[in-house]
Amino acid sequence: MADTIDLATYGERFREDPHSVYAELRGLGPVHRVRLPPPEDIGDAYLVVGYEECRTALTDRRFAKSSASAGFAFREEGLIGTHLLIADPPHHTRLRKLVTREFTMRRVDALRPRIQQITDDLLDEMLIRGETARTRRGDLLEALAFQLPITVICELLGVPDIDRTAFRRMSNGIVASPTQEEEAAAFAELAGYLDDLVAAKRSAPGEDLLSALIRTAGDEDGDRLSHDELRAMAFVLLIAGHETTVNLIGNAVHALFTHPDQLAALRADMTLLDGAIEEALRFEGPVEAATYRFATEETELGGLVIPPGAVVRIVIAAADRDPARFPEPDRFDIRRAPQGHVAFGYGLHHCLGAQLARVEGKIALGSLLARCPDLAPDGPPGEWLPGTLIRGMRRLPVRW
């Protein structure tokens, strides 16, 4: 049996600079048996940090997404239901088929003018508030990075004027809670809200995505999503549909701030915007590690034998900085051709909203730099979020 590496021994370094820890581990091998630090109290797990091994693990059916396959029972299934992130074929295939027909590129492209309008309105508000307060300072995460994707996904799903402060608290509690108790409370609170939302949509459907999911049926057998499945689908679209984009925008701006030569290059040539977004996804993507997988049988990966029932954590951030795949991986270069990064996953569970996140990221970053040509950091950012799921900061102070 492989020795267990206790990641808690790395202390704050693991939160502040996990890339250096993953590089150290990758130097010893592509897969390790580890103990994840709090709040991820799940016992020992197998951490995958090599690019090729991550791609293999993301597509290997022996690493299941359903916790039941390994005898686990996560609280989210009891409160929210089985959703795309914790389902395996054929259940996953059925769920994805029912939502994919509504979540199309045509729908995303049709959203571009509205995304631009929301972005412009948010930047207007940010700049006016700065002028009124005579500070020209603000928190970019609060003013733009959070407000844009939550507005877009709420409008897409047909969520009425949600209490944004309460929703952000619930969302952070789910993806980056410092304690399991706070995580459980966030799940329970959001589950109650979504129950009410699905019931309201059933009684008064509209032209939104959630109403369409209620109406949609399979071509041959009239298959429809049940109430529990609709709640779970709304959950994953709301949380994943905004949380990744919040941190894509925030992390991209932070990467440009810490690499002023790249910021200057982008300001001088905005045709580099697509490359800047893709490099930000590779360099400091919003998802640090994929959601848990569970070995259904003894499996060899990266020279290590993973026993049945083991928890497997595939580290996206480590894969995208593997020097075997990306030369000089710790160099942020918006002219790089980062094809092959796995920031949105790979295989069956590739992120359904990847293109929407890209569109929002490009519009937000392009508009921000156009409206604020002298945008600069206003002191250090807030602390990085705890846990290994989401990579992002709590605050990003800026001035203009």
Rank of each mutant, 00 (worst) to 15 (best):
V175C: 02
R107E: 09
A200Q: 13
R202C: 06
M270Y: 02
R399Y: 03
A354N: 04
F167I: 06
A133W: 05
A45H: 11
E24K: 11
A252W: 00
D228I: 07
A290C: 13
R61V: 14
G309W: 02
T245S: 14
R395F: 08
Q147C: 04
S211K: 05
A343Y: 03
T165L: 10
L190T: 02
L127H: 04
V31T: 02
H242M: 14
P149N: 03
G78H: 06
P30I: 01
I162D: 02
E155N: 08
E328S: 14
E24N: 09
E328P: 07
F72N: 11
L237T: 11
A343S: 09
H227K: 09
L256Q: 00
G345I: 02
P18H: 05
A45M: 12
D17Y: 04
L79P: 03
L272A: 06
L58D: 00
D378S: 14
L248R: 01
I277M: 03
P323L: 12
A64V: 04
F103Q: 08
G218E: 12
R136F: 12
L369R: 00
L266E: 00
L140P: 01
K201S: 03
T388Y: 14
Y346R: 15
D196Q: 15
L25I: 02
S66E: 11
E24R: 12
R26F: 01
Q355D: 15
L157R: 02
Y51G: 10
D41M: 09
A70F: 03
M126Q: 06
L98Y: 08
G366M: 07
H242K: 13
L197A: 04
E12S: 15
F72Y: 15
L263A: 13
G303W: 10
